[in-house]
Design a binder for these strands. Sequence first.
DNA 1: GTGCCCAAGATTGCATACGATTTGGCCAAG
DNA 2: CTTGGCCAAATCGTATGCAATCTTGGGCAC
Lengths: 255, 255
Amino acid sequence: MLAICTRSRYKAQAVGCVMNISENITFPEASQEDRSLAIREALRNAIIDRRLAPGTKLSESEVGALFSVSRTVARAALQMLGFEGLVRIERNRGAFVSNPSPDEARQIFASRRLIEPGIIAAAVERITAADIKQFRRQLEEEQRHINERGPSARRAEIKASGDFHLMLASVAGNVILQKFMDELVGRSSLVIALYGRSGISSCGHSEHLAILDALEKGDGAQASRLMLHHIDHIEADLDLQLKQGFALKDALALT
Amino acid sequence: MLAICTRSRYKAQAVGCVMNISENITFPEASQEDRSLAIREALRNAIIDRRLAPGTKLSESEVGALFSVSRTVARAALQMLGFEGLVRIERNRGAFVSNPSPDEARQIFASRRLIEPGIIAAAVERITAADIKQFRRQLEEEQRHINERGPSARRAEIKASGDFHLMLASVAGNVILQKFMDELVGRSSLVIALYGRSGISSCGHSEHLAILDALEKGDGAQASRLMLHHIDHIEADLDLQLKQGFALKDALALT
DNA sequence: GTGCCCAAGATTGCATACGATTTGGCCAAG
DNA sequence: CTTGGCCAAATCGTATGCAATCTTGGGCAC
């Protein structure tokens, strides 16, 4: 069972799995629109927080029950997550939280190394003073989360770190690349939650600052270099070898 | 009505719109699996062939009726196309064939200019003699379609041209980039059908050959250069200005 | 004791039904 | 003749029911 699984693994915040997963959705009034989108967001957050362990089965009825919607709506949300690569959908079997292989993780970062310099190049041409201000606010927010401790802070920290890259994509003004980055950031967060070995963010944060400074100066080449290093650092903090040896046991345990 | 609309615009091949759109799906035996995928493919083909004009409404019931399935599975297919950007979905209004703006078209090609050199770089490291052989076969196929005339040949030609880029992505061995290219090729095909002014392919074909030759020699830098030129040429063949003046009328007419 | 088979339970795939929202036309007022 | 509002038809969003498929546990044969 979904509830039991997450509860047993993370007793600290186990006031009830239902509340854990759906905590962030305030269905109060306006959300008469597209509940499946809200559910997608909630599940997405739960996955990249690792509150839902890779391999966990997400049954349609269960998800539907958790959010008080029919299987139809739950199914739509799961389908969307399937497109993003955060869940794997097997016909007649159901949806499972993705368990990206080390190889896939490398491909994700290789893709980012390809795309993000392009985003920087576009962003440096279009970024405004207002944007910069917005970025600085965002980075302060990020810093705030880093100083806090506890699981929910770490969660906010990963999210904030990803948001920096998403804002960059937004400034670049290319909606297609923005969508790609959306997917890549989501998958990266999952991979970091899976294979990360430390608090990457303290170093990540200062790198974000450096990138922003370079952008402000209009030095796109420097910003690109910094971005590549940043991605390298994130990937270097991952532990992508070990699992290779445990592939068998791993598959046995939770695939 | 969907049928009437396409029939009136393309009388030449109007043996009946139903057959036109669903012609390629042979539901005979194996397709007990995921009919929505088959429908997605059929609609995708119809869209990039321009048998379905941009702005055309794709009603769930109508699509369902055409393929003899319920709205549920038709809806799933439309949702998938929405993710790919080939249709635009508006809440409580329905799904419409995308009408990408010139600006969006430029963003699509900008994305390709970013990603495809990366794919080349990865492919040149991994391509095998067998792959090369496969590519040559594919290019012969492409040539064959170019020599033929008629609407269905032009369709096969656009598809074959896109397949070259998809094969390249496949050889590169990065499933994420491969997925991105899938989307980009689909959207490019739509844009070419929309804004293309001539038979791009005759020149495109020789460029494909040149790229392959460079790859065979292991000259990734040269292959990348050729690829960028190739993309430039495709984009240069488009007529992205005119519509700007007609923006008002355009929005009025079929957005 | 081990391995295979089969039936019951659970879960997904799909179809259909019903309420909600939008649209287009009709009629009346200006 | 135009404009504004109201009503009906069409279409979407969602829930639910049924058939098909998969999983699992027990029983039987070897």
